[in-house]
């Protein structure tokens, strides 16, 4: 199958350098060809384990408390206690 690598990269919020495009395209085609061999199986779509159901939390704030500085310590850019991002609305 032919893969439009530039399109998939765009959907993935990735940029593939021009000199790597060919290699990525070839690899992706090989991988997609590999996973392509799948049988048509009937049956339910979701894998629900009835014996081990998930337990949902109460809709309450988690008790773990963090200081603002702790959480911002890993941020790439901070100003006045806020995360700095490029302008998002034109």
């Amino acid at each position: 199958m032919k893969i439009d690598i530039k399109h998939i990269a765009k959907l993935s919020r990735l940029k593939i350098e021009d000199d790597k495009l060919e290699k990525f395209e070839k690899d992706m085609e090989t991988i997609v060809n590999m996973v392509d061999n799948m049988p048509d199986v009937d049956g339910p779509l979701t894998l629900l384990d009835e014996e081990n159901p998930m337990t949902l939390r109460e809709d309450k704030a988690v008790a773990d408390k963090f200081k603002r500085e702790e959480l911002l310590a890993n941020a790439p850019e901070v100003q006045a206690g806020c995360l700095v991002v490029p302008k998002t609305v034109e």
Binding site: L14, M28, V32
Partner: peptide, 9 residues
């Protein structure tokens, strides 16, 4: 990147 793109695909 390959896996993210395969997953996206």
């Amino acid at each position: 990147k390959r896996r993210i793109m395969l997953g996206t695909f």
